[in-house]
Design a protein around this nucleic acid. Structure first.
Length: 304
DNA sequence: AACAGCTGCAACCGCTCCGAC
DNA sequence: CGTCGGAGCGGTTGCAGCTGT
């Protein structure tokens, strides 16, 4: 028996994508939009399986992708969300516009895991790693910090965000029962990061001064508005190097959309649009490109 | 300069989910 | 309700570039 492969693999190309293949895929999706992925390679003239095309598009070619390293604030969000959701990278990614699950997963495995370990925090459980050194300093620090922390806890309001109301069939082992309960209610409560990092089991980052806290945590200066509800949650993020869409200012927004665009991507699109190499669909492509620039929301929600 | 080991990221693989029938 | 097929997800791999010796 066995499951049939997702596509006929014989004669299909694997490995890194060439610029030519990218161009074909971009051109096809610009003219036809995202349709049945299995049909894409055939229609686009690619010797790839549909799955590979989808992956290439969603992880690399999509114009609303934000490239480059995650900002500190994004990193902080990833840590918080991971503490709540576990390895559900796509769910985590859905809270970070312009980032893909693959990108976040990679960043987690290569950067954040190490940082947390350095800080003496188990990246799986988000709880302090057990070590005698940590326990010693922990007790000392606890005495010093106990009172202020309690006051802080009382003053801080948790961030609350909405997640899919769908109850996950597959729960990760690290998930606490309270989290699952919250999920069933359709929301998850994310404490401000300093709570997450400092107060788990009374543990404080100051106890492990290998890494300065500000190397991984950004100032909570925007938290004055972090009593936010689900609707303005994204606005509250205010990532430092990232202009968020603002419906109140559409015109300005249009120019900001370009911030999403990687230089290489723009130049390759320019190439596509300006390249008259006998392509009959130039007009259509140009139209599509313009629509893309004007309507970033359509891109973001796959409506293009 | 040459080599080995390490790191980060793009891409693949296999499994699960979910809608259509 | 069961089956099928497409899409999506998370874990893993392969490789290019970087760093240290």
């Amino acid at each position: 028996m066995g499951r049939q492969p997702c596509c006929e693999k014989v004669g299909l190309k694997k490995g890194p994508w060439t610029a030519e293949e990218d161009k074909k895929l971009i051109t096809f999706i610009l003219t036809n939009g995202q349709c049945c992925w299995r049909a894409v390679p055939k229609l686009a003239g690619l010797l790839r399986c549909g799955k590979s095309c989808r992956l290439r598009w969603t992880n690399y070619l999509r114009p609303d992708l934000k490239r480059g390293l995650l900002s500190e604030y994004e990193e902080k969000m990833v840590i918080d969300l991971h503490a709540q959701l576990g390895n559900r990278w796509s769910k985590i990614a859905s809270h970070l516009p312009g980032r893909t699950d693959n990108e976040i997963k990679n960043h987690w495995n290569t950067h954040i895991k190490k940082k947390l370990k350095k800080m003496g925090i188990d990246p799986i459980t988000h709880k302090p790693l057990i070590s005698s050194t940590i326990n010693q300093t922990h007790n000392q620090a606890k005495q010093q910090l106990h009172q202020p922390i309690e006051e802080k806890q009382q003053n801080q309001q948790p961030l609350t965000i909405d997640i899919d109301t769908k109850i996950e069939k597959q729960e990760t082992s690290i998930e606490s029962s309270s989290n699952i309960e919250m999920k069933e209610k359709g929301e998850i409560t994310i404490p401000p990061l300093f709570d997450t990092m400092e107060l788990i089991d009374g543990f404080c980052i100051d106890e492990v001064p290998i890494l300065e806290p500000n190397e991984i945590i950004v100032s909570n200066s925007t938290s004055s508005s972090s009593t936010s509800n689900s609707t303005n949650f994204l606005e509250d993020l205010q990532l430092p190097d990232f202009e968020w869409s603002n419906n109140d200012n559409k015109e300005e927004n249009n120019s900001n959309n370009l911030a999403f665009w990687d230089d290489d991507f723009i130049s390759s699109l320019n190439f596509m649009i300006n390249d008259d190499g006998g392509c009959v669909n130039n007009g259509e492509r140009k139209q599509a490109f313009e629509a893309m620039i004007v309507d970033s929301e359509s891109w973001a929600y796959g409506l293009f």
